[in-house]
């Protein structure tokens, strides 16, 4: 089963932004998200390390800066953007805490999306003796660009440790449908809206309640 949308998290991400706002998209690829956002009046810039993707983003009319995320965001000013986005890339970044801290320095608000390794089909795959392969984890263990393997529960623990406020959370299944119940079990793709604990200027949302995991018996 493939996604009806090429990237189901884009709809969620776009819904959290308003016309006139600015966004920095880290690991922007060919600029698909920024193109979608531009059509909604949101000004964006991308950061991308792959020269072929940089070329494609320029072809797409996107403002893109060729740079390696592992080098950090040193060139960008504090609070320069309304939103900083890292979509389906966090699991490929080695310095997880550093990049999250840098994003929260540069943006008033941070959006991250990542594949949930605790999705029930992934758990089944491991139970059956294999690493999971799915639409949201479309790689074999030997060719995956992913270097960090974590679940929603793991991520939320890190947010607590780093004093990061979770402002909103949306979870999608493999078909791109919103999952409201048992997200860490039924959700294949997680999208988080994060802020600094000292405010950051955006409307403060009520953080989603911590959830229990029905499958913790495994």
């Amino acid at each position: 089963m493939s996604h009806p949308l090429k990237r189901p998290d884009f709809g969620v991400i776009a819904s959290w932004m308003k016309p006139g706002e600015t966004v920095l998209d880290l690991g922007c690829g060919e600029g698909e998200l920024l193109k979608l956002l531009a059509a909604r009046g949101i000004r964006g810039w991308g950061v991308e390390r792959d020269p072929g993707h940089v070329l494609a983003a320029i072809e797409n009319g996107i403002s893109v800066i060729q740079s390696d995320l592992d080098a950090g965001l040193a060139g960008f000013e504090d609070g320069a953007f309304d939103h900083v986005v890292l979509s389906l890339t966090l699991q490929t970044v080695r310095h997880t805490q550093q990049i999250l801290a840098e994003m929260l320095r540069v943006g008033r608000e941070v959006v991250v999306s990542f594949p949930n390794f605790a999705y029930w089909k992934n758990r089944m795959a491991v139970l059956n003796g294999h690493m999971p392969v799915s639409d949201d984890l479309p790689y074999q263990w030997y060719d995956t660009p992913n270097v960090r393997f974590f679940t929603m529960l793991d991520f939320e623990s890190l947010c607590t440790d780093m004093d990061i406020v979770i402002r909103d959370r949306q979870v999608l299944d493999e078909r791109g449908q919103l999952m409201l119940e048992e997200p860490n079990f039924l959700g294949s793709l997680a999208v988080y809206r994060l802020g600094r604990s000292n405010g950051g200027g955006a409307t403060r949302l009520v953080a989603p309640a911590p959830f229990s995991d029905p499958a913790q018996v495994f």
């Binding site: 320029i58 403002s63 893109v64 060729q66 000013e77 320069a80």
Partner: peptide
């Protein structure tokens, strides 16, 4: 060149930057 790019980013100019191997 990155100094130029960073300076342009500060006031939100539209800028693309390519570093050619």
């Amino acid at each position: 060149s990155r100094e130029i790019v960073n300076a342009l980013m500060k006031y939100k100019h539209d800028v693309s930057y390519a570093e050619i191997t």
